[in-house]
Amino acid sequence: MNIPWLALLSLLLKGVAILAFFAVNAMFLIWLERKISAKIQNRLGPMVVGPHGALQLIADTVKLLLKENIVPAEADRLIWWLAPFFVAVPTVAAFLCIPFSQEWIVADLNVGILFICSITSLCVLGVFMAGWGSNNKYSLLGGMRSAAQIVSYEVPLLLSVLVVIMEAGTLSMQGIVHAQELGWFCLKPNVLLAFLIYMISATAEVNRVPFDIPEAESELVSGYHTEYSGMKFSMFFLAEYANLFIISAVAATLFLGGWLGPLRPSVFWFLIKVYGIISFLMWIRWTLPRVRMDQMMSFAWKVLTPLALINVLVTGWLLAGKG
């Protein structure tokens, strides 16, 4: 058998680069979130370690590495151990198909967007395993709520992605970007509606305010990761911020033209769009209160899902009329 060593080596290097980006991005986002929340609440935020607290996260990582591993009594040990893997590994895998620019994509799979959607929905398994395995009432309630919320908002999310697939006629991420060379998809009214539905559902998918019911600290302590400490806790935290990046990157690619922009380098345009969306989500997080569980569930099924279904049919009508 002829093993393509060169291709393997190149894949390995790309993988290591993605892992480095994964870690640095999460650190940057946590710092950004703390700084934005501080600005909104008239505080300074982290200031001690490094200039403007930029190195705070390195200190925190060292601290988390040195933390004792506390296994709750009567925990379902195997499930409890596997849960951080189920949450963090899919977020690494999803970076495979994210198009940073024309050249900067690890593999432009022909099912790119489907791959990202299916792989990121694996996280719900990890969340529920964490809730069930911990042998803690708050964890179980948080895990149940989170599972119900994530599956409910999955439906309008996928239906709004479907609208983009119909417009582009392809599942490949680069293909979707190239289909927007004549104008970003969000400039069309039906896709703009899909963008709105996508952003609401994606916020719920990553359990952020105003949809952070699973982690509502006033009633559930910390939700499904109450019993986790040290490195296991930090894996949940890392995955949360990686997911935030992934949903924003998908939003930028599907609706805002991805890396398309007037000047080179195009990776710059991609990152501006992604971090713009992330800052917007952070602004929302520190401004709005959380919604009630029943309001949230009925909003997904009674408002967003019918709206998204109608939007799919209208888009089909518009496109079939043209072609």
């Binding site: 894949l11 993988g15 892992l19 951080p84 893997f85 963090a88 590994v89 899919p90 495979l96």
Partner: peptide, 13 residues
């Protein structure tokens, strides 16, 4: 690529 990225993620965690 998919298999490789899964292995990479497992190795990282």
């Amino acid at each position: 690529n998919i298999v490789f990225f899964f292995m990479l993620g497992i190795a990282f965690v």
